[in-house]
């Protein structure tokens, strides 16, 4: 695969604008090249802001989800490009899978490669995977797979394709809530400040409405990170996680954290609504 070097993490505002202006007339094949950001040095203060916002302990250890945040601008750069077959605005993050091969710290210089794979039909449209691979001095230390859905006419056989709730997702844990997360109205803006993701659906009710949401919605990867943080430091070391996103968390709101824990496997979920229950995500962590 051809890798194109990126000198520094691109700024997401202009990329989102470019993607929005060039969303018409997309199609064809996935790009054959990937993007590479070499020897990235983590900004400690930005990391601390991220750790505090997601409720990880502030320090030198990179949270399970942090390399995703570092690689996300490359994902957007790849997808914003006119040659990418799916239009970026309205793309829905359906699943995210992460494998941490070893504990990472701010001392590590990260080589991050992002490429797209497996464009495939889905009952509600088309799916694509964005793969993020992180190496330190040639050693594979972290990998992530983000699955996005472009809603639209589907080429998939409605009967045979994967269910919308996510194939392989564990059952939502039952029982009383392990915790209540109060998600404030300004979360989207605060997460944008630490992650660089200025997607308008997270920023404000007004900008979210233009994209068809009643209010701004929490960033899925914040919700996933917050859920992992609630499970303690075990996900810092070698571990793997999968998260299946369902209904978005509207801002502000109070959501219940549900946990089913066993020695090497934890399942956690976020739900809300007293009368009509809304499932936001279900997450599985193996350690």
């Amino acid at each position: 695969m051809e890798l194109r070097e990126v000198a520094s993490a691109p700024s997401l505002g202009p990329l989102f604008a470019r993607a929005a202006l060039s969303q018409k007339g997309r199609g064809g094949q996935l790009p054959s090249h990937g993007l590479r950001l070499a020897r990235l040095e983590v900004d400690r203060w930005r990391l601390l802001d991220y750790q505090h916002l997601c409720r990880f302990t502030g320090g030198d250890v990179l949270p399970h989800t942090y390399p995703h945040v570092l690689g996300f601008p490359l994902q957007v750069a790849l997808m914003a490009d006119r040659g990418f077959p799916l239009a970026l605005p309205g793309l829905v993050h359906l699943e995210n899978h992460i494998t941490v091969h070893r504990r990472l710290t701010t001392a590590d210089r990260l080589d991050i490669v992002v490429h797209a794979a497996d464009l495939r039909p889905h009952p509600k449209g088309t799916l694509v995977d964005l793969l993020t691979e992180v190496e330190v001095a040639g050693e594979r230390v972290w990998e992530g797979r983000s699955t996005y859905l472009r809603r639209g006419r589907s080429a998939a056989d409605e009967q045979g394709a994967a269910p919308a709730g996510g194939a392989g997702a564990p059952d939502m844990p039952g029982g009383p809530p392990a915790g209540l997360l109060r998600v404030p109205e300004d979360l989207g803006r605060r997460y944008a400040a630490v992650s660089g993701d200025v997607n308008p659906i997270h920023l404000h009710a007004l900008t979210a409405r233009t994209m068809g949401f009643p209010r701004a919605i929490a960033h899925g990867m914040w919700s996933a990170a917050r859920t992992l943080a609630a499970l303690g430091p075990r996900a810092d070391g070698p571990s793997s996680s999968s998260v299946w996103f369902r209904k978005p968390v509207l801002l502000p709101s109070t959501v219940e954290l549900l946990v089913h824990d066993s020695p090497h496997r934890a399942v956690a979920g976020l739900v809300s609504g007293r009368d009509e229950r809304r499932e936001h995500l279900v997450l599985e962590l193996h350690t």
């Binding site: 203060w45 601390l48 802001d49 302990t57 502030g58 320090g59 030198d60």
Partner: peptide
């Protein structure tokens, strides 16, 4: 450590 909290630092020392 301007941005580190007491809890961050105590946890780091404990770890």
């Amino acid at each position: 450590y301007a941005k580190a909290s007491n809890q961050d630092m105590l946890t780091a020392a404990l770890e």
